[in-house]
Design a protein around this nucleic acid. Sequence first.
DNA 1: CGCATAAAGTTGCAACTGCAACAAGCAGAG
DNA 2: CTCTGCTTGTTGCAGTTGCAACTTTATGCG
Lengths: 150, 150
Amino acid sequence: MDRLNLLSFAPFRLNRLATEFSNALAADYARFGIDIPEWRVLATLGQHEGPRSAAYVVRCTRTHKSRISRAVSHLIELGLLERQESGDDRREIMLQLTTQGRATYAELVPILLEREAKLLSGLSEAQRRDFDRLLEVLEESLGLARRGEE
Amino acid sequence: MDRLNLLSFAPFRLNRLATEFSNALAADYARFGIDIPEWRVLATLGQHEGPRSAAYVVRCTRTHKSRISRAVSHLIELGLLERQESGDDRREIMLQLTTQGRATYAELVPILLEREAKLLSGLSEAQRRDFDRLLEVLEESLGLARRGEE
DNA sequence: CGCATAAAGTTGCAACTGCAACAAGCAGAG
DNA sequence: CTCTGCTTGTTGCAGTTGCAACTTTATGCG
């Protein structure tokens, strides 16, 4: 009979690793009172100068629109974000970071990049390239390709 | 100012990949009416002949004990598992698959192994070895080492 | 125009999760 | 023996999540 060792089973391992990564980051966000989906919204809008629609954020982050909607509401409560009506399509709601939102983004980014570096610090330079390449291949074959929405 | 591209950010990518993997597997479990934590219990007990305690399952799966507790209850309802008292420590509850539980395990394992193979099918043989090695290194540096509880 | 269809966001709901508190049982010190 | 503290497993609770239904607005077809 086939057996299966959970600790060698790729989906399980990946899941556990991702959870560990997420928890490590959560500690960083927590200082600013935000969680993962909220960080994703912040990160997406922080990359650009101008406003973007919620649908754009949904596409970029590959996160469910209800989660984005709630994250946006909370960021607004925190004063990091504001909604503004779109001129040409009144269904669309354009999102833009406030000054405080930009400040938070600027403060958070170096912290998170450092956290990422620490999480990957066990890997050699070559391994880091392998890692990147592997993620790319797997994303590609799962239809999560990094194309589009830049 | 530092910027951060979410799509290049390892924690985000890992998270998305793991979610995708999990969802793919969930479709397989669903046929048997079980979910991820339940599968983990099944997988852990299926590897052995004899009974094991819930704490053992917790350690093997690195899953919170409340989750395991609820998973166990459900598996019992489904008739896949039974509890039996431990002789020497009456706090411990030993868990053992029923005949039906073993049958489900035997049926599920090949399906899941095939699913895993499909998810990794984009990788060459060499890349698969790299992948395994990278997971090992990252697990190691996060204290998720594969040692113990075999 | 008028109708059907589709997209953008929001929200209610039910399911799931983790934490902390808990009951029951064990183990060691004095 | 008994008191304290630890471990095992369960459960209440509050927070989070995804899905589906819904509102509002746009679009396409006849």
